[in-house]
Amino acid sequence: MKGLLFKDWKTLLKQMKVMLAITTLLACVPGTYLSAFALFYAAMMPITALAYDERAKWDELAAMMPYSVKEIVGSKYVLGLLLVLPVLALSVLSRLIVHSTPIAGENTMAMLITACLSLILMSINLPFMFHLGVEKGRLIYILLTCAFIVAGVNFAGKLADMANDIEVAMVTTVPLILLAVAAVALLLSYFISVRVYRARRG
């Protein structure tokens, strides 16, 4: 899988140098929204890598190489994690060092929640992209992302209405629940993508 990850990383680095630098910068800037953007952007990168694969018809070559379907599919999930986790670490560390935000504080936990949400969104999108291809699946990708954001905003609103002590919930239950949901979503999504990819190969 190392070869696949290296190929994706090199391709992204060469094609999107500026965007990756901006993402890194946004992760360090104070303000939840900018860091959230950086996290969601990082979680979109596996789909961008898939688009480059599709353009090069890389899958045809990968099928001839000593890679299993699980490795080919799994590499995109690992790539997502390898990009989201450093962005999360960077935003938390910058807050910790520059702004002296407590590690268990609301702002830090908001970052963790956003990271979990970005991974859940990635888990929803990837099986569709493996099934349809990025070119054909573009519309579905946009619709799913919009639906996810609308659902997320509604859910957050209801949560705020329900909980009197939302600050406490933000640093205790919500991050834990979302962490578990993200882990389950990633696993489920991976297994679905493997099946979808196998079926697509024919």
């Binding site: 190929k7 060469k14 480059y52 090069a56 070559l61």
Partner: peptide
Amino acid sequence: VLDEAYYPEVL
């Protein structure tokens, strides 16, 4: 070796 070399174009 396939009928085309399917490497990412930026590499």
